[in-house]
Simulated assay, not measured.
Amino acid sequence: MSAVAETIAARKAAGSGALVGYLPVGFPNLAESIEAAVALVENGVDVLELGLPYSDPVMDGTVIQEATQQALASGFKLQQGFEAVAAITARVSAPVLMMTYWNPVLAYGVERFSDDLLAAGGAGLITPDLIPDEAADWMAASDRTGLDRVFLAAPSSTTARLEQAVQASRGFVYAVSTMGITGARSDVDSAARGLVARLRDAGSTSACVGVGISTAEQVREVLEYADGAIVGSLLVKALADGGVDAVARAAAALAIGTRPAS
């Protein structure tokens, strides 16, 4: 079993589910992004999702886009992503997934990227713009290295697509709760519950819901039917507004949702 799947299974066995926290590497600078990621784990995040800044982030909302564009404008280089993973995994035991669009991986070289991520202590990749039937090179590289591969499923996905995502994914399937881009919303779309049910029917034993989760109450609600809750925009905004201390407080507040309601 993968490190990510083991972590999620352990949280479920404890009576809850996993909290997955996203931050972009290199924002507001490399050193602070590393400190912020460590702070997430120290304040209740179970799995880290580190985003590689990319020039055309089609899935990301305004908050994340602005952060990644700032990182790029400050000179972020892809190699720094591996440096960050190595620095983080040297300090905390939570598995670290890298979230990346596919073009940077292709440009770097799929095999080389996989080897460097593994060497840095990374757990695998979340690839929002890559579908399994176009992922032969990544499937082969991840099978060779043992890295996790997280594919996305949306409410609009056909049953065949859901089955494909379940069969191809390792670690978890990323269930996109709403149609559209990421960003905190006052209500997590009710389509998420139906999507996770469809993923269960397709054979999924590990499905995490993301896009729009921003409160402990929403985390708790999602964990009633899913295996993990993924939070990004809220944490990025906290880091932008108040630095590492603020993102630590935001993570701690979200983590309350992984504990039984009093």
Rank of each mutant, 00 (worst) to 15 (best):
M1V: 14
S2C: 10
A3R: 11
E6V: 07
T7N: 04
T7R: 09
A9C: 12
A10S: 15
R11P: 10
A13F: 10
A13T: 15
S16R: 08
S16C: 11
G17F: 13
G17Q: 11
A18E: 01
G26F: 01
N29S: 13
I34A: 03
E35K: 15
A36R: 03
A39S: 14
L40Y: 02
V41K: 00
G44E: 02
V45Y: 00
E49I: 03
E49W: 00
E49A: 02
P53H: 06
S55D: 09
P57C: 04
D60C: 01
G61D: 02
E66R: 12
E66L: 09
A67D: 10
L72W: 10
S74C: 12
S74A: 15
G75Y: 14
F76A: 05
F82M: 14
A84C: 07
V85N: 02
V85R: 01
V85T: 06
A86F: 12
A87W: 01
A87N: 04
T89N: 07
A90I: 08
A94S: 09
A94V: 04
L97M: 13
M99V: 02
Y101R: 01
W102F: 15
N103K: 09
G109N: 12
E111F: 03
F113I: 11
D115A: 15
L118Y: 02
L118H: 04
A123L: 07
I126L: 12
T127S: 11
P128D: 06
P128G: 08
D129T: 11
L130K: 02
I131L: 10
P132M: 10
A136I: 09
W138Q: 13
M139P: 02
M139Q: 15
M139K: 15
S142G: 13
R144W: 03
D148H: 03
P155Q: 09
S157A: 09
T158I: 11
T158N: 04
T159H: 07
T159I: 03
A160F: 01
R161I: 00
E163Y: 05
V166W: 05
V166D: 03
R170A: 10
G171I: 01
F172H: 04
V173I: 13
V173C: 08
V173N: 05
Y174C: 05
V176G: 05
T182N: 08
G183A: 12
A184V: 14
A184L: 13
D187W: 13
D189N: 08
A191D: 09
A192N: 12
R193D: 12
L195K: 01
R198S: 11
R200C: 08
D201K: 14
A202D: 05
A202H: 06
S204A: 15
T205F: 10
A207E: 04
G210K: 01
G212Y: 06
I213K: 04
S214I: 03
T215N: 14
Q218K: 05
V219F: 02
V222Y: 01
E224A: 15
Y225P: 09
Y225C: 09
Y225H: 12
G228C: 12
G228Y: 05
G228H: 07
A229N: 11
G232F: 03
L239M: 08
V244D: 01
D245G: 15
V247A: 00
A248G: 14
A250T: 13
A252H: 10
A253T: 13
A255R: 04
I256Y: 09
G257K: 00
R259L: 14
A261S: 14
